[in-house]
Design a protein around this nucleic acid. Structure first.
Lengths: 248, 248
DNA sequence: CGTAGCCTTGAAGGTGATCAATGTTTGTGG
DNA sequence: CCACAAACATTGATCACCTTCAAGGCTACG
C-alpha cells in the first residue's frame, strides 16, 4: 500500500474515532497523536487477526465491521466472549502486563477494519494522557458489566438468553452515532452479521437449540433474518422472554 | 472506636497489604499514603457492606475473611459474580465514572475486614502514582479473565463447573503468601467458607444439584467438608472432571 | 463441480430443575 | 438455658428443557 493511502486511511480513522461515544469531546490532537503511531488493518470475513496465546504487542480500536473474540474451551470447541463492534477497544486490558499474551482469538465477521496501535504507545499514554486511558477503561468496564449480566442469566431459559443477547446488541448500536429512526419500519437492526452458530457459541448452547428458538420467533413475526442480518420486529415481546414469561 | 485503635489497625493494614502479591515490591510510603486516607471496616458474617445501585463513593481492598459480590437476577434470585479474598480489590473499576454506582452487592462471608478508601484518593492516584493504579488494574484483569474462563465452561457438565470453581479458589490462595505445605496431609484447603447455596448461586445452578455432586465426591473421598471449610483431597480427580472425563 | 460453512428438521435421551419433605446447625430473645 | 426461628444440608421422585445424533438442503466460493 503506497504511503498516501495509509495516510488517507489514518485521516479517516481519526474522524471515525472522534465519532465513537467513548471518545466524544476528546481533543482532536490527542486522537491524532494516538493514530499517528498506529496503522489501519483491513480484514476479510473469517480472517483471524491474532490467536489466543499470541504475544500481545499491540491493541486495537474497531473502526468498521465487527470482530468476534473467542477462546478455546477444554472440550475443544469455541466460546465467544465478546462481539466487538465499531468503537470497541480490543486487548487494551493486557497492555500493562509485562509479557502480555492475547487472552482471546480475534476473528473478523464480514469485511472489517481496525486501528492497530503498538503497546508502547499505550504505555506512554499512562504518563502523558491519563484522560484517554480512562476512556478506554470505561469501555472495558462496560464489557465486564456485560459479562456479569450474562452470567446472571445462566439459570434462565434459552429464550431469555437469546433475547437478552439480541437486545444488548441493538442497544449498543443505539448508543453510537447512527440514527435509528428505522424502528417503526423494519424494526431494530442488529449491527453485526450473526450466524446461529455464533449466537450458540456466545451463549454456550448448541446451534440446533438456537435455530429452534429463532425459527419460532420468525414464525411469530418477532424477528426476521436475511443475509445474516437479524432484525427485531417486536422488541416488546423479546423483553417479555428476558423477564421469564414464556410465550403468550 | 478510640483513635488509637484506628491507628493501630491502619498500621496492621499497611503491612498486610504489602504482603499481597499485587502490591509486592511496592514502596512502603506509597501504601502508607494510600492507607492514610482510608479506614479499616470490620464486618460480621452475612453483613452487607453496600448494595447494588448504591452511590459508589469509595473502593476497598479486602484484608481478611472474604466478601461475595452478587447482583440480583431478573427472576429475583442472586447471582454471585465473584468471591473476593484477601488482597482483592473491590469496586475500583467504577471509580473513574462520573456518578459511579456499585455494580454489585457486597456481603461478608464470615468475620471479615477491608480497607475502605474514598473515591477522591483513587482519582488522585491517577495523577500521582500510576504504578499503583496499574497494579489495581492487574487484579481486575485477572477477574475479567476468570469470568471469561467460567463462561467457556457454560456447556460443560455440572461436575466440570464445580471442579473448576474449587480449583480456582485454591489456586488463588496458593498465589498468596501462605505456606501450603498441608497438601499431603489434609488436602488443599479452600480459603473461603462456602455454603452449597453460594456455590450454586455462583455457577447459576440449583443448591440440590451442587449437593448431589458434592455428596458423591465426599463418598469417593475426593473432598471433605466441615464447618463450611471445604478441602480437596484428590485434586487430580477434580481436574479430570474439568476436562470432560466423567467418573472412572 | 465439489467442498465447506451454514441452516433446518426430527427423534431419542440425559442432565439438571422442580417440588416436597425432613434433618441439622446457628442464632436470638424470653 | 430453653424455645423458636432462620439458614443450611439432604434425599427422592418426577419432569422439562436442551443436547445429541442423524439426515438433508441451501448458498458461496475456489
Amino acid at each position: 500500500m503506497p504511503p498516501s493511502d495509509t495516510a488517507k486511511s489514518l485521516q479517516g480513522a481519526i474522524s471515525e474515532i472522534l465519532n465513537f461515544p467513548i471518545f466524544r469531546q476528546c481533543p482532536r490532537e490527542k486522537i491524532e497523536a494516538l493514530c499517528r503511531s498506529g496503522q489501519v488493518i483491513v480484514s476479510n470475513h473469517r480472517q483471524r487477526v491474532f490467536d489466543f496465546g499470541d504475544p500481545g504487542t499491540y491493541f486495537g480500536i474497531v473502526l468498521g465491521g465487527a470482530y468476534k473474540l473467542s477462546r478455546p474451551t477444554p472440550s475443544g470447541e469455541d466460546s465467544i466472549v465478546h462481539f466487538a463492534a465499531p468503537g470497541d477497544v480490543i486487548a487494551a486490558f493486557i497492555m500493562t502486563q509485562s509479557q502480555p499474551r492475547f487472552p482471546v482469538t480475534a476473528t473478523a465477521m464480514g469485511p472489517s477494519r481496525f486501528l492497530k496501535i503498538p503497546r508502547e504507545t499505550y504505555l506512554e499514554l499512562w504518563r502523558t494522557d491519563v484522560d484517554l486511558i480512562a476512556r478506554i477503561q470505561a469501555d472495558l468496564s462496560s464489557r465486564m458489566s456485560l459479562l456479569q449480566m450474562q452470567k446472571a442469566l445462566n439459570k434462565a431459559p434459552l429464550t431469555a438468553k437469546i433475547a437478552s443477547l439480541l437486545m444488548d446488541l441493538v442497544a449498543r448500536q443505539g448508543n453510537e452515532g447512527l440514527a435509528n429512526e428505522e424502528k417503526d419500519e423494519s424494526g431494530l437492526i442488529i449491527p453485526i452479521p450473526l450466524t446461529r452458530k455464533e449466537i450458540a457459541d456466545n451463549l454456550g448452547v448448541t446451534t440446533e437449540s438456537v435455530i429452534r428458538v429463532m425459527s419460532d420467533w420468525s414464525k411469530e413475526g418477532y424477528v426476521t433474518t436475511n443475509e445474516r442480518q437479524i432484525s427485531i420486529l417486536r422488541p416488546d415481546q423479546l423483553i417479555h422472554f428476558i423477564h421469564g414469561e414464556s410465550s403468550n
